[in-house]
Design a protein around this nucleic acid. Structure first.
Length: 892
RNA sequence: GCCGAAGUGGCGGAAUGGCAGACGCGGUGGUCUCAAAAACCAUUAGGGGCAACCCUGUGUGGGUUCGACUCCCACCUUCGGCACCA
């Protein structure tokens, strides 16, 4: 039936180019600020635009969200689907330094390339709302928010020792230290004291925890945030130091074991260490502190190493029994958690137990699991069993309730108080870097720290020749006199500007608000715009941002809520994480020694354990049978990137979109070996194209008027086609809604198969009037169903039906439940749980009739022989299970 | 070590207590063609049988149930996250 006329060829290149141009020229994706339609805000994590451009890995997130955005728009929502650039930060700066270029210029160029690529796959972003976090008209407001936090007492300067990366020559947040190493460059992190700006996120710990119960996020992400916040209930108790006025405050989750505290341990960095060290112990203590400082985080955090520590020479008094107990320092106690000091209860804490055994410190049992148990026979600590055997609570069980009673008792006695402690630490916002938003603060000799007045914002990043880190730990901005020298806004005296810039997470903590009102130059956003668009209804990105970005953004949102700027407390109502895309990558085994070397920076990829990606020259010199392939993430440095451009060129953007959706569930990791899947998608689209054009001559524009009258007269095949059509319409809609794109696409394929069979059955006969109406309904509905998924082809076919405009402006068709209903259902007949037969019945067949038919069918009768029916289990609409039992002996 | 997710044909995957393998890839056979490609049709978990059919089968071993890929217990493997948190 097909012919070779030009219009019958699926020329995806011409079609995609044509429609992308029409969409751009007509402003199809521009979203009105206000509308009578309900709003829907669909957002993807805004990317840092790198020179490598986007790979099909990025598409794994952007394409599905575009499908949802388009679908929602067809459902009648006013959809905000924006995109922008997370342009500040160390990667951009490092790249700029390497290339000797201006980072701003570079980022703009890279962003333009991203934009081109995203347009090439037909993503429906409203580019009129594009934002760039490194533009002054954006970071002006980032600075404005800094001042807001400062005014509310949530930005402060701290001087605690910070993580120092000697490679990046910059401080790192605790969150940015991965396994003791810089998360960017992998260099081992050192400690160095430096005055820093912090945001007091810990003040919001409880609300950040509580808010998690109100949002639709993956449970795994919520759990990670809960763990990160790390709430634990316990008590603070003061231990007086023997023969001194000093007291040591400790935090414990187990105040009920106070009676078993036989020593104390301070972190080596604890401020009291100096004073509590007796002269005879000083040499050893100093040596230990130095050793602990030299140790990397990695070494200190190894859980399985032998506990070490040093006695300070001083004693503390256990407040519950006035026992004199020795004070130690040990590196397993961390200054950053609790109070940096612990009471040690060897009988009930395994770490304390190991320490006590090693240094021959007495062990006192507070709980006993049997009456004869002694501390001498103890093999390991008893954390959560037994009955208390001393003190005023003797006889109490080892439970949370006992802990609570003891806390109450401590408060009554004035010995301690119940407290809630969090693992969460304040957010280090300072960066000693050039490429970030300058912190809008001024240091005045007279007035101290003074905020830059709002009307003087933005504090502009000065153009600069050299933005290499100074190496002294100060920002490159410190080397620019024109920037540093200013006058105090309060007293007018000469003053110095703060030279630290803000870390990138500041920019990304509010960008979702700016999209609502991106060009506002009087305020960060208008109340009206944010009230209409926010919160984000659907947010999607990689799970690697599970904690940091998503926690910081939630924190800012709560602060803005408290400041009365917005009316919601959680920024992202629904969150989804897309799976990774891994590429099958050739490499070679390397020796442990070679893998351990850092190597030169231009090396093809970081070593992954004992394996390295092949460099281009190695691909020529090493024979292929010695290549060892592995699945690794697509990245430019690994030389395994496949770009959407090349896929679009070869198979079409619609084919790529279809493939990404169909390959695997959204959350799953996809393994990329070759373009076979995209090719298959292209084949499917060709098939649709062909079938559709074969039937196109029978299309009647007036089918909606005439179809209802013919419904009663349809034959079985005709009803079958309609049924499949409306079932597909239903399933595809549900699947897009629930992020089950792969089965949604499968449904489209099933319908296509059905339509193909219908076409084949027509053979060369002319369809009846009724059949023409059915064909018309199918052709038009199919185009609309494909619109969110393969928008270029859908718009082309739409125009070939003689209709104006874009499918995006059409309503998503409602399915007819009666048409989608099954006429016959299959009832499975089981005997003892094994399938023996199937019955075709009308859906409304009474249950008794079905059971009678089941018992009556030949297969069941054959099994019945010599047995009796014990029971019949019926599941309406699904199955009948006949449970047989051997006849009782003697009856046979 | 702890927490989480997952394990199904040759491959990607479908089915969340009720027909295991939808849909697609790959394979096989056929139609069309001088031939090939494309397309179309049929077939495709494994084993047995001429056949109708029968048996086995969702990482391994147990359990619950009329019935288990699905729920429970133990273990194995893979991936992700966290790691002395007092």
């Amino acid at each position: 039936m097909s012919d070779d006329r030009a219009e019958n060829r699926y020329d995806f290149r011409a079609i995609e180019q044509k429609w992308q141009q029409i969409w751009a020229e007509s402003g199809l994706f521009r979203v009105p600020d206000h509308s009578d339609r309900p709003k829907f805000y669909a957002l993807v994590f805004f990317p840092y635009p790198s020179g490598a451009g986007i790979s099909i890995g990025h598409c794994k997130n952007y394409i599905p969200l575009d499908v949802v955005a388009r679908f929602k728009r067809m459902q009648g929502y006013n959809v905000l689907h924006p995109m922008g650039w997370d342009a500040f930060g160390q990667p951009a700066e490092n790249e700029a330094i390497k290339q000797g270029r201006n980072p701003g210029e570079m980022v703009s160029e890279y962003a333009a390339n991203y934009k081109r690529q995203l347009n090439r796959v037909g993503i429906s972003y409203d580019w009129s709302r594009e934002i760039n976090s490194s533009h002054p008209d954006y970071y002006r407001w980032t600075q404005w928010f800094f001042l807001l936090l400062y005014r509310r007492g949530l930005a402060y300067r701290g001087t605690a020792p910070i993580n120092w990366c000697p490679q990046c020559k910059t401080g790192l947040a605790n969150e940015e230290v991965v396994a003791g190493q810089c998360w960017r460059c992998g260099t081992t992190v050192e400690k160095r004291p430096m005055p820093q700006w912090y945001f007091k996120i810990t003040a919001y710990a409880e609300r950040l925890l509580a808010g998690l119960d109100t949002i639709q996020w993956p449970e795994g992400i919520k759990m990670m945030q809960r763990e990160w916040i790390g709430r634990s209930e316990g008590a603070e108790v003061d231990f007086p130091v023997a023969g001194s006025n000093d007291t040591i405050r400790i935090f414990t989750t187990r105040p009920d074991t106070l009676w078993g505290a036989t020593f104390m341990v301070l972190a080596p960095e604890h401020p009291l260490v100096e004073r509590l060290t007796t002269p005879d112990r000083r040499a050893e203590v100093t040596a230990y502190i130095q050793k602990a400082q030299r140790e990397t985080e990695v070494e200190r955090q190894a859980t399985d190493r032998v506990k070490t520590g040093v006695f300070l020479g001083s004693y503390a008094i256990n407040p519950v029994n006035n026992q004199k107990i020795p004070i130690y320092i040990a590196d397993y106690v961390l200054m950053g958690y609790g109070t940096g000091a612990i009471m040690a209860v060897p009988a009930h804490d395994q770490r304390d137990f190991e320490f006590a055994r090693k240094y021959h410190i007495p062990i006192t049992l507070v709980y006993r699991t049997d009456a004869h148990q002694t501390s001498e026979t103890l093999q390991q600590a008893i954390p959560d069993q037994g009955t208390m055997c001393l003190g005023p609570f003797a006889g109490a069980p080892n439970t949370r309730d006992t802990v609570r009673r003891v806390i109450q008792w401590l408060e009554e006695q004035g010995l301690g108080r119940g407290v809630v402690n969090y693992r969460l630490r304040d957010w280090l916002i300072s960066r000693q870097r050039y490429w970030g938003a300058p912190i809008p603060m001024i240091h005045c000799a007279q007035c101290g720290i003074v905020p830059v007045p709002e009307d003087q914002l933005p504090v502009l990043l000065p153009p600069v020749e050299k933005y290499q880190p100074t190496g002294t730990g100060e920002s490159p901005l410190a080397g620019i006199p024109e920037f540093v020298h200013t006058t105090c806004p309060q007293c007018g005296a000469p003053a110095r500007r703060e030279t630290d810039t803000m870390g990138g997470f500041a920019c990304s903590s509010w960008y979702f608000l700016r999209f609502a009102d991106p060009h506002n130059d009087r305020e960060p956003f208008s109340q009206r715009a944010v009230d209409y668009w926010l919160p984000v209804d659907l947010y999607s990105g990689g799970a690697e941002h599970a904690v940091m970005h998503l926690l910081y953004a939630r924190f800012w949102t709560k602060v803005l809520y408290d400041a009365g700027l917005i009316r919601f407390e959680e920024p992202f109502t629904r969150l989804r994480n897309q799976g990774m895309l891994l590429a099958w990558t050739p490499g070679r085994r390397v020796s442990a020694a070679e893998a351990g070397q850092t190597g030169d920076e231009t090396d093809a990829g970081e070593p992954i354990e004992d394996w390295k990606v092949l460099k281009p020259e190695e691909r020529l010199t090493i024979p292929e049978d010695q290549w060892e392939y592995r699945w690794v993430k697509m990245s430019k440095s690994l030389r395994n990137v496949v770009t959407p451009d090349e896929m679009a060129e070869q198979y079409g953007a619609d084919s790529l979109r279809l493939y990404i959706l169909f390959a695997a569930p959204f959350e799953e990791t996809v393994l990329w070996k070759d373009a076979g899947g995209v090719e298959a998608a292209n084949r499917f689209l060709n098939r649709v194209w062909r079938i559709w054009h074969d039937l196109r001559p029978h299309y009647r524009d007036d089918w909606r008027v005439h179809l209802p009258a013919t419904r009663a007269g349809l034959n079985a095949d005709e009803r079958r086609l309609r049924r499949k059509l409306h079932q597909t319409l239903r399933k595809l809609g549900e699947d897009i809604e629930n992020f089950r794109f792969n089965t949604g696409v499968a449904a489209l394929m099933e319908f296509t198969n059905e339509l193909s069979a219908f076409r084949n059955a027509l053979a060369s006969t002319t369809p009846t009037a009724t059949q023409q109406l059915l064909i018309s309904e199918s052709l038009e509905t199919l185009v609309l169903m494909m619109a969110p998924v393969t928008p270029h082809m859908a718009d082309e076919l739409w125009s070939q039906l003689g209709k104006p405009g874009s499918t995006l402006e059409q309503m998503w068709p409602a399915y007819e439940p009666e048409a989608a209903a099954e006429e016959q259902i299959t009832i499975v007949v089981q005997v003892n749980g094994k399938v023996r037969d199937r019955l075709q019945v009308a859906p409304d067949t009474p249950q008794e009739a079905i059971e009678r038919m089941a018992l009556d069918c030949e297969k069941v009768r054959a099994e019945l022989n010599g047995k009796q029916v014990h029971r019949i289990v019926s599941v309406p609409g699904k199955l009948v299970n006949v449970v047989l039992r051997e006849s009782a002996p003697g009856l046979q």
